[in-house]
Amino acid sequence: MKIKSEFQHGQAVPVLYTCLSKNINPPLEFETIPAGTKSMVLIIEDVDATPRPWTHWMVFNIPPHVTSVAAGTIPNGATEGLANNHSFGYEGPCPKYFRGTHHYWFRLYALDIVLDLPAASEREVVEEKMQGHILEQANLLGLCTAG
């Protein structure tokens, strides 16, 4: 399984998708979804945030036939969960609030179930329900450096 965007793995997230511009999610492509996938989960996190990783966007119950997400949209048929600050919606990298280079992991999980959870679910609850149901995982790393 693969997750791709207009930036390559390990390269900078374009400014358009940060708080310094439109702050919309980048376009994403999902490839080679494993057989038996009933739903997918997308979690974007800044692993360099302190005191713990910061969830910038969480979307679950993405239907397995969804192979792309346009910039600034939620995947069709999916449920947007809560990100940090108990908020809905994409929150892009924000270099004005940190120093150095931060690593943003776009993690896509293929599950053998559809999660029976309300939209206002926290990441910890979603991850708990995912346990034992992950068929495969794909990762895309984007960087953002305070300048």
Rank of each mutant, 00 (worst) to 15 (best):
D48H: 11
I74V: 14
L143V: 03
L16D: 09
P26C: 12
Y97F: 13
V114D: 00
I44M: 12
V66N: 02
N76R: 13
I134P: 00
E80G: 06
F7L: 08
P27Y: 08
W105D: 12
H103L: 04
E45Q: 14
P95L: 11
C19I: 02
K22L: 12
G132C: 01
Q137W: 00
E128S: 12
F106N: 06
I134E: 08
P14I: 04
A12K: 02
I62G: 04
P34L: 10
E31H: 14
Q11E: 15
L111H: 07
W57Y: 11
T32H: 15
T32M: 05
Q8Y: 06
A70G: 11
L141S: 03
Y109V: 02
K2C: 00
P27F: 00
I33F: 06
V13G: 02
P51W: 05
N25F: 02
K2E: 13
F88R: 05
W105P: 02
Y90D: 04
L117F: 07
D112A: 07
F106W: 12
K22I: 06
K96D: 06
G36K: 10
A146T: 12
G142I: 06
I62N: 04
L108F: 01
T101P: 04
G10V: 07
N25S: 15
H103N: 15
L140E: 01
N76T: 14
Q131F: 07
K129T: 09
P27S: 10
Y109F: 15
K96Y: 01
W57T: 00
K129V: 10
C94M: 11
L141Q: 09
P75E: 09
G132N: 07
H133R: 12
N84H: 12
G10W: 03
I24R: 06
K96P: 02
T55A: 11
H86I: 03
V59H: 07
Y97E: 14
V125I: 15
S5P: 05
Q137I: 12
H65Q: 15
V41N: 07
M58D: 03
I24M: 10
Y17E: 01
L28W: 08
A120K: 13
V13P: 02
L82Y: 00
E91R: 11
F106M: 09
V59M: 04
D48E: 13
G72N: 12
D116L: 04
V126N: 01
I44T: 03
G132W: 03
H102W: 08
G72S: 12
T79S: 15
D116W: 01
G81F: 05
T18L: 05
R99A: 13
G142N: 07
A138K: 10
E45W: 03
V66Q: 02
Y109T: 10
V47F: 08
A71P: 01
Q8A: 14
P26W: 05
E31S: 14
